[in-house]
Write a protein that binds this DNA or RNA. Structure first.
Lengths: 299, 299
DNA sequence: GCAAATTTGTTCGTATGTATT
DNA sequence: CAATACATACGAACAAATTTG
């Protein structure tokens, strides 16, 4: 009992929103109106709105008003290998194919839904949109740096050893999609993989290049997934709301090779960062019947 | 340019914290002192602290003060199958073994670190602690319900069909760890799996039980991963901070079976919820040399 | 066990700044 | 340029949680 007033207001508003009194995208009454509704001061109303905003239910826009958050259609990334192509999910170009496929599925689902919509109590139409435009990558930026702790630990090189850093930004049309940074030990360049230092894309990916150039075959990889608040660079790139409510997912993928000469060792570590509010991930284990795998809406 | 005052203060404090002027767990000066430091009103100082608090850098405790957030040692869950045991990661009992193993590794790492600590500029000691006590599960609660949309879609039953819901809470010692709810189609009970309705644990897991009882073998499963704000029940169970800054990770795992009689079909869907600030996930693909897999600290 | 002191939390009022229409 | 709506900033008072004496 006896919640503070601003939370009572927030919860009443949450109830109203969830009851459908306001729909996603709707503008809410302005602060002055709420002041009268709830007989509270403007600051208290603002506290309530802030509480809802942090929880992602509403968004405020200076000069415009407060709006019920529009759900975002999540982009889904498969992190397990494709059993057919054997391709690693979630990285660079490999992910391009997936977003295209997902769009196609969505289009088909819409068709089906339209045909079935002869029924009356039709489920609410899914108005969420995937970002428009083609997926593409920025030109990579290259740096040679001293390995920070976490990179050194993963590449099994001494802290402070020189490593190559290749950084790319990915977009879907004009929507920022992901930030990706890969570290390679300098040793690969010394052994002849000089193209790692050139600021240009590898058409089939850097892993493929290393395989062809040096015979360094990726025999396996480990992906670590964690969730954290965005740093300033990330918040700006992804245009995340100022209030810091949207976390990012960080994928840390260490690739291993195994040669007779050197034995097994890690040869690259890739950090991929994505906003957590518009990305989901899928892992298939064993035999998942693709045709049944529900394209269920997310809870 | 010209950031608002409260953000200038917040960023100055962030810089000081990151520079080590205050260490994790330290109490910061109180609001009145900050008021003098920055020549700002108490409310402005509070706005700055709130900004840091949402980003997880500090925590406020009424009557005590504001503290630099203590890093939490993440619990790591492997979502790919164990190549030896073939066991699904992240679920119920299977996860118990992992936390035990992780603790053991941590203990060993500490030993090693102590021996190497003869060096001078020793890396800061990792003071983060894993939760104490043994992992254990609550007695399951059972319900028979009409399938909500998302469950129905995943189990390929009509919306509103009856399903069995088994819910459990997992703890490590007295620390809440995860909430787990599994839905089974009613049909499994009709075919004889009546123990699904009994409020008791399956010592080897429900999947094993269904295999032995009905010959329903899980041939594969798909795990969907998403991040979202906690609902009220989750926030209370996990004792998440009131300010709503800690999101939860939701794992949705659909298990498939494939029989000659019925063909392939989904036979269960499990929703697992974990706080995102103290959990990380790992997926192994291909051949990852276990002895090399870095126990790196997280960025 | 209680009372005082300390510290953050809530609520009001008011004025001015900034973004958008 | 004017009107509207949210954002920032200050001041003040009291409430609630916690520690300390």
């Amino acid at each position: 009992m006896a919640d503070p007033k601003y939370r009572e207001i927030a919860q009443d508003l949450q109830r109203r929103i969830e009851a459908g009194e306001f729909s996603p995208g709707d503008r809410l009454p302005n602060e002055m109106e709420f002041r009268e509704w709830y007989d509270a001061s403007r600051n208290t109303v603002r506290d309530a709105i802030k509480w809802l905003s942090i929880r992602g239910l509403v968004e405020t826009k200076a000069g415009q008003g407060t709006f019920v958050t529009q759900l975002i259609e999540p982009i889904i990334t498969t992190l397990s290998e494709d059993p057919e192509t054997g391709l690693a999910g979630g990285e660079g170009k490999a992910a391009f194919a997936e977003i295209i496929k997902q769009r196609e599925r969505k289009r088909q689902a819409h068709e089906t839904a339209r045909q079935e919509a002869s029924g009356d109590q039709a489920a609410e139409p899914d108005t969420r949109e995937l970002p428009e435009g083609e997926p593409h990558a920025s030109v990579p930026t290259i740096e040679v740096k001293f390995a920070p702790d976490d990179v050194a630990e993963r590449l099994l090189v001494p802290t402070g050893a020189e490593v190559i850093l290749r950084h790319q930004e990915f977009y879907i049309g004009r929507t920022p999609w992901s930030l990706q940074t890969t570290f390679y030990p300098m040793e690969l360049v010394e052994r002849g993989a000089s193209a790692l230092l050139r600021a240009q894309d590898f058409p089939d990916g850097a892993v493929k290049y290393l395989e062809e150039k040096l015979g360094v075959v990726q025999c396996g990889y480990r992906t670590r997934i964690l969730v954290r608040p965005p740093n300033q660079v990330e918040a700006r790139f992804f245009r995340l709301p100022e209030d810091g409510r949207v976390p990012v997912v960080s994928l840390i993928r260490t690739g291993y090779t195994d040669t007779e000469e050197y034995g097994p060792y890690p040869f690259r570590v890739t950090f991929t960062v994505l906003p957590a509010d518009r990305h989901q991930f899928v892992i298939n284990s064993g035999n998942v019947p693709e045709e049944l795998a529900a394209q269920a809406r997310d809870q």
